[in-house]
Design a protein around this nucleic acid. Structure first.
Length: 422
RNA sequence: GUGACCAUAGCUCAGCUGGUAGAGCGCCUGACUGUGGAUCAGGUGGUCGCGGGUUCGAAUCCCGCUGGUCACCCCA
């Protein structure tokens, strides 16, 4: 058997690549329009980084990380998410000195050892954004606004923004106790997994699908918020309302990463199936300290490119495409090839994507190839053209063709492409 | 990690209750020896995912493995 790709990974090419480029380029554009700069961090990090940030008890750390020992005996991990790396990089490069706030975005592959299904792969790709330094709900608002703007630019319509507040270290213990009390009376009704969660992390009980009914009438985190958290949450909603950004309060929304404080949010798409969260994030005011740094408030989100692309397809959104074969240069013979190469060079300098025949085929096969590739024009160069210093210009759509001097041919093709495509 | 369904030509699939492979599309060639897209003719193409078992005989039945898909779990 031939070697095949690793389970849960994908080759991306052809039509698919245009969706990806559109998502990535739109994200870059939107982030930069909000004042964010790009950051690229290694995809491999010390295992410790994720254990301390994402949380020892989380599923990600417990069973989903690509962790191995390198040749130097160090435990390293393929990043399962982007925030930890960015925070690490922020501290390691002393970026505090640049003042606040600082907005960053990133694009790249993440790795989680899970069983693949629709919208879930072992190597998947995220676009992410982090806003560092502001404790204000205005930062939360702006971050959600940015995400919303991006999704709108992509063209998505059938998605919803869900928000919740899970409090801070001072008020969450109260809530946790209330939840424990609530579930202690219903312990026997819980599914096996939830019985374990009851001990480890009660908050997780809320997003269990088996016990969803119980979660509906469970105590809500928003009812246990301290004064500060309460004000923060209310103000965020005020800004969202004022800006006309639609959202739904979901009191069962708790995220699977331990570093979140106060605001958490998620965007779900209705056309997607089980894995319907296309983006998610929240505030992480304690993360810098958890990683041994100063206390710096921050928040951010990540979106899954694969899932966003699925959502686009679901809604019938087509990305812009690039035709790498606008012009096909048909050459008949060695001298014609030399002339064709020169002509192609001039066209490329004018920004026209041009392919020159290198298979030494007959004219019929070359035109057939040009047609298949979707060339708008073919330029035919044979011996009779060379002796008269002309080329044949063929419009592939109409089949019309005429002779032109080489320099004139370049101008005419460039003009024709310009008028047609605009 | 658990479960269900699936795995035949480059692609989409057929192959009924076991008798050692077929279609459409694609690709190549020709009709059209310097003209593509339509049509027609011909050609290329598969140790039927891998390994084992039952059988005179397995693509077809059974078991295992690998991979895919979907769901659980969790998340992007």
């Amino acid at each position: 058997m031939r070697i095949q790709r690793i389970k849960g990974t994908n080759d991306i090419f052809g039509e698919e690549i245009f969706y990806w480029r559109f998502v990535e380029e739109t994200f870059r554009k939107v982030c930069e329009s909000f004042g964010a700069e790009e950051m690229r961090t290694p995809i491999i990090e010390p295992t410790e980084l994720f254990v301390r940030s994402v949380g020892e008890e989380t599923d990600i750390v417990q069973k989903e990380m690509y962790t191995f020992v390198d040749r130097g005996g160090r435990s390293v991990t393929l990043r399962p998410e982007g925030t930890a790396s960015l925070v690490r990089a922020f501290m390691e490069n002393s970026l505090v000195n640049r003042g606040f706030p600082q907005r960053f975005y990133y694009v790249g592959p993440m790795f989680r050892y899970e069983k693949p299904q629709s919208g879930r792969l072992r190597q998947f790709h995220q676009i992410g954004y982090e806003c560092i330094g502001s404790p204000s709900p205005r930062a939360d608002f702006e971050t959600i606004l940015l995400l919303n703007t991006f999704l709108k630019e992509i063209g998505l319509a059938r998605h919803r923004v869900y928000i919740n507040s899970i409090g801070c270290p001072s008020c969450r213990p109260n809530y946790r106790n209330a939840l424990k009390e609530y579930y202690s009376f219903r312990y026997e009704q819980l599914c096996e997994d939830c019985k374990k969660r009851y001990e480890r992390n009660v908050l997780r009980l809320l997003d269990c699908k088996v016990d969803a009914e119980l979660a509906k009438s469970a105590p809500k985190s928003v009812d246990f918020l301290c004064e500060e958290c309460r004000r923060h949450y209310d103000e965020l909603k005020e800004y969202l309302d004022s800006a006309g950004i639609p959202y739904v309060e979901d009191h069962t929304l708790v995220r699977g990463l331990d570093y979140y404080t106060r605001t958490v949010f998620e965007v779900r798409h209705e056309g997607l199936g089980a894995q319907n969260a296309i983006a998610g994030g929240g505030r992480y005011d304690g993360l810098f300290e958890d990683l041994g740094g100063p206390s710096i408030p921050a928040l951010g989100f990540a979106g899954g490119i694969e899932r966003i692309v699925l959502a686009m397809k679901e809604e019938g959104i087509l990305p812009p495409k690039v035709n790498p074969h606008e012009v096909y240069v048909v050459v008949l013979g060695k001298e014609a090839f030399k002339v064709g190469v020169e002509l192609a060079k001039k066209l490329r300098e004018r920004g026209v994507n041009t392919e020159v025949e290198i298979m030494e085929r007959n004219i019929s096969a070359q035109l057939k190839n040009a047609n298949r590739l979707g060339a708008r024009f073919s330029i035919i160069i044979g011996e009779s053209e060379i002796t008269r210093s002309v080329v044949l210009l063929r419009d592939m759509a109409s089949g019309e063709q005429f002779e032109a001097g080489i320099d004139l041919a370049v101008d005419r093709v460039v003009d024709a492409l310009k008028t047609k495509s605009s």
